[in-house]
Amino acid sequence: MLELRLVQGSLFKKVLDGIKDLVNDANFDCSSTGFSLQAMDSSHVALVALLLRSEGFEHYRCDRNISMGMNLSNMAKMFKCAGNDDIITIKADDGGDTVTFMFESPTQDKISDFEMKLMSIDSEHLGIPEAEYHAIVKMPSSEFARICRDLSTIGDTVVISVSKEGVKFTTKGDIGIANIVCRQNTSVDKPEEATVIEMNEPVSLTFALRYMNSFTKATPLSNIVTISLSNELPVVVEYKIAEMGYVRFYLAPKIEE
């Protein structure tokens, strides 16, 4: 038996909106640690890892580990029916072939439940090794989304370079070249407006903007995005979910032949 109750139900909606463009079907894994997911996009270039820790839920019951295969766009259709202030409960029986989503309005005067069919998904679970990153950039998530959106109107790929100067985003297209440099800026009024750059070594990597733009769909989850870079390793674009966990996107860099 599985029963997870989240008073801030809008978080589930934001998580789904953040990952459903990248991944069609995925197994949600439930254990005593929390509610998690790891899935690759259909071309196996990017990977998303989600963790919602059990402590973050108002009620969390998971009698034994279960993995539930779900179609994310169908799930999003059902979650669209939940109000932004609704309390969301996810329920499933061990060995069952459905999952139930229950939405309660804050005043308890409207209660809906939606039963969705589960699916069997063959998925490969990948081991993500702990890595020392050459550079870690923390910046406002809205600024990062803006940069990715702007650059994708000019080119298809972005070179992200971190040096003493700051973090530079470069693209090239038929019409020309664009460079955007963000310098470390910690003297702002609010911590979420700061750009913080930790650099152990200069790093420069090329990525497909299409994927970066897809990752920025998770922007409403966090004011801050953390971009971890190491030469010849996938970049990690992380949106922390306050008190609960994270959504991390991994993207393989393009490699010169």
Binding site: M40, S43, H44, V45, A46, L47, E124, H125, L126, G127, I128, P129, T157, T206, A208, L233, P234, Y250, L251, A252, P253, K254, I255, E256, E257
Partner: peptide, 14 residues
């Protein structure tokens, strides 16, 4: 041009 490798080139199956 640059080649796009898959993520499985970096992370292996467990």
């Amino acid at each position: 041009g640059a080649k796009q490798p898959t993520i499985t080139r970096f992370f292996s199956k467990v």
